[in-house]
């Protein structure tokens, strides 16, 4: 049920309130999706679409950061914690 698929914002169709919608490309498939929850997305951005509406804009910098961390040769050493809440680990 919580399946979310990343898709590319190809073209905004309407940016007005609850009617906000854009054409989203999922590889070779395009579909009109509702964009009321992600008004900040621009054409060319990737968003996660769930049940026909975009629920978040994918942060490309975080993707790069994730990949760099995993590709880092220090992976086998003690890895610094990712973003935490509620204080630092001992």
């Amino acid at each position: 049920m919580c399946l979310g698929i990343p898709g590319k914002v190809v073209r905004w169709l309407c940016r007005e309130g609850v009617a906000a919608a854009a054409e989203i490309e999922f590889e070779s498939v395009r579909r009109v999706c509702h964009m009321a929850c992600v008004p900040e997305a621009e054409e060319g951005d990737y968003v996660i679409v769930h049940a026909g509406i975009a629920i978040s804009r994918i942060d490309p910098q975080e993707v790069v950061r994730f990949q760099e961390e995993l590709a880092n040769s220090k992976l086998h050493d003690e890895w610094p914690l990712t973003e935490t809440a509620g204080g630092e680990l001992p």
């Binding site: 979310g4 009321a36 942060d59 809440a85």
Partner: peptide
Amino acid sequence: RQLEVGSAQVENCYRRSVRREGNLRAQQL
């Protein structure tokens, strides 16, 4: 890693989509 050091914290490992405050526009709807 948290369990091994006896820690219990919230950690975000899905940062490309998740922010601490969530999607405020969606919450408003």
